[in-house]
Design a protein around this nucleic acid. Structure first.
Lengths: 120, 120
DNA sequence: TGAACATATGAAGAATTGTTCATATGTTTA
DNA sequence: TAAACATATGAACAATTCTTCATATGTTCA
């Protein structure tokens, strides 16, 4: 992101004190980045579908692929992203790997999102 | 998304009944899409910063640009996206346009996101 | 051990997205 | 009405992302 001087409205709306206070309370750069990265993970309909399905039942990669009508590779790639974000966990059982939701934040966030879009 | 037949594990992990039940409960295509679109809006650090700043105070475009050290055009573009997603609202006051958070879902979602990344 | 199966992953191409630049729109005031 | 100011927006380029294909890894069982 380019940092630069910005010519700005001077009379009405620049409240320097207010800006200073906000600046001080601002999230750290890496927190901001992590937060955006987290939501980016939610921001894909394939991953939303995976999370939604896993909120109903623990499933293996193959079941997920079949349920979502997508090939195994695509699902595996998305599961990797979900796992890196700690939104899902997995356990191996023989040849299969079963995935499930990592914790309740996932459900809460999905639920809040649903509420928001339903209010429109 | 390509829909196709997937050769799938047959012995261990395909639970056809389970899949049928999940299929029936699955979100509608457009709900899924809307939900992903919503989270996509949260999935950018500039927009997260805008939302965070607006959670502290109502600000005009110019103040936002100055606070975030970005130019006015970039901020306006992002505000448009936030407004389309109904995450912010605006009111005009003379030459300036003031933006603020649209509702408390925004705060809840941001808060849950913060909790999640802080638990790591 | 080797064949069969389930999952993971690297590379590549298509599609999407964010910022910048230039300019348009809308508001105030001289 | 014209100039000055604040905001909005279209086009373009760079960067990121998602899916597919091919193949590698890991597990079971004959």
């Amino acid at each position: 992101m380019a940092i630069q001087d910005v010519e700005c409205c001077e009379e009405i709306c620049v409240h320097e004190e207010r800006i200073k206070v906000i600046d001080a309370q601002m999230l750290e750069e890496d927190e901001l980045y992590d937060l955006a990265e987290l939501f980016k993970v939610f921001g894909d309909s394939t991953r939303i579908r995976i999370l939604f399905v896993l909120s109903e039942a623990e499933l293996c990669v193959c079941d997920l692929a079949q349920t979502l009508h997508m090939n195994q590779s695509a699902i595996s790639h998305q599961l990797k992203i979900l796992k890196q974000a700690k939104l899902v966990t997995s356990r191996r059982e023989g040849k299969s790997v079963f995935y499930s939701l990592a914790d309740d934040h996932v459900r809460t966030i999905l639920g809040q999102g649903m509420e928001h879009i339903e209010e429109k």
